[in-house]
Design a binder for these strands. Sequence first.
DNA 1: ATGAAAGCGCTAACAG
DNA 2: CTGTTAGCGCTTTCAT
Lengths: 338, 338
Amino acid sequence: MVTRERPTLEAVARRAGVSRATVSRVVNGSTTVAAAIRDAVVRAVEELGYVPNQAARSLVTQRTESIALILPESASRVFSDDLFFPAVIRGVSLELEAADKQLVLMMAGSAAGQERVQRYATAGHVDGVMFASMHGTDPLPGRLARLGIPVVCSGRPMSPAHPAIPYVDVDHIGGVMAAVRHLLDLGRRRIATIAGPQDMVAGIDRLTGYRTALRDAGLPEHVAYGDFTRESGIQAMRRLLADDPALDAVFVASDMMAHGALQALRETGRRIPADVAVIGFDDFEISRLSDPPLTTVHQPIVDMGRTMAGQILGLVTATADVPAAVVLPTKLVVRASA
Amino acid sequence: MVTRERPTLEAVARRAGVSRATVSRVVNGSTTVAAAIRDAVVRAVEELGYVPNQAARSLVTQRTESIALILPESASRVFSDDLFFPAVIRGVSLELEAADKQLVLMMAGSAAGQERVQRYATAGHVDGVMFASMHGTDPLPGRLARLGIPVVCSGRPMSPAHPAIPYVDVDHIGGVMAAVRHLLDLGRRRIATIAGPQDMVAGIDRLTGYRTALRDAGLPEHVAYGDFTRESGIQAMRRLLADDPALDAVFVASDMMAHGALQALRETGRRIPADVAVIGFDDFEISRLSDPPLTTVHQPIVDMGRTMAGQILGLVTATADVPAAVVLPTKLVVRASA
DNA sequence: ATGAAAGCGCTAACAG
DNA sequence: CTGTTAGCGCTTTCAT
């Protein structure tokens, strides 16, 4: 290890022939420093390659300029072929980068992970915390908020916390109802659904949308459950077909599961959409490339990330009012599968 | 904001009726504390919900228990449909999680990003730094290493740095040569390649493998270049076909580009592998699901991540000898496309 | 085995 | 406008 000692404020001050306070002012861009002195300090900083020690700075400012995004999932899940997480992260990155804040990504799939994350945040490593992909009634957001840590969520929390936590979400129900109505307009009458996990608001709301639309039409429901993965879509589709070989349409609560469903349907020789119409939810890029291209409900995931990041920045800098809830619109995108 | 003041060591000490030093010992698991006192301290810690302030701790220990993974790419690239990055991250996560270190992911696609990353690392935010997906002769790893920060790379650095930086890589050339030989065994004689970007070792080495194998066989080469994205694969394949409509095989330097190539070939009505045999490089999950399933060179990306993380842990804790280079094997996986 | 004391490197009053 | 002075919360000798 080379371990060239890193220079401190003190060293810079000595070299420039001024006090530590003055160097600190220059480094932090204070305007009340004489030009000549500032130049001398700047030169000393460059000559020494001085970079402020963040730990020391945080200790006194109580700020870290970092913000965490917590995903209550395993790393294997987050970094799989699922395209939801990447999109959220992309949105968050865009916004934080513009604000020159560092993103700290934390996966907390296990109980140990949850513990780690809580310690990390409580230890003052970050100025604020974002949650995405929440399951059930995760107590962590509320707990951190109660500790005075700024918190926002993407996805409406399943149980309202005290204090209330700001969140972004999309209009799941509206999107799904548009999708099911489209199937009805197509003349389909045996419309099944592959629902998402029922410990997540996205799973619950999309199922509610389906149920509402079918009830409005006076048709019976037909539900199988998956967990948003492609594989679970395959399995669920097979179950649906076993229950009702004559079904003529299926609304699938995520694109990944819809791709699984397409595969399962093809395996039974069914033509899409002639025999069975399929609609997904997400509108990922690859859904345009599948065979046939997938009709799906578009949700603006990147925007959710951006919005959430905007909210946390507002809380952290206490500079803007942060809305308690933002609900982004969804939209049916019709392609060849329905 | 609730801002319940977070308790300090001092508070715990008062409550337990001991000195700060003793509380510190208990919190850090020192064995030289009387059982009775330790219990009292532990109780006080729990009652107050005490969590050590990481900034203060880092200030004195000079350690953060965090390690950065730096990806010299834009967030949009890292979190796209490319499956390389997720796999690396997954491997890294697995290993760091086991060591209870926090992963800090940093994208540094722009010059501003590079700057940010350098400041961040130099400011002592992390104990060590990993690089993946390096382009050209990126000076950053060398610079950080010279500052005494432990650094490792995935992918052999293009220009050896001083001090030498440990790295992991895979046997690109061996894998590619096996692939091209397979095409030769199949009787193919007009074998083209879609090469990766030539500012990356992975791009260079895979092209070298192709060239070597063709030269050994006494056949002419036929090269188009892409940048590892699907779209660039489509374009490159079209160029190759325009140059030589009679080509009967193509080795593509990444699976994503290979999927693009398959699409471009299908669009011209060519049958795969009857008319043109295609081999990729990566062996992503989806390559088994493409039409037809892709013959490809398997590289153990997750293992690269794990290995790299192991190396950095060794450097950071200075507990194990860290090999200067680890080269993981690759292997041809034959499926229907060749 | 425990406590007292000295900083780690920095910022932020407060004087001057 | 600049310097002096206190700490931020913690670990770690060094005594006891």
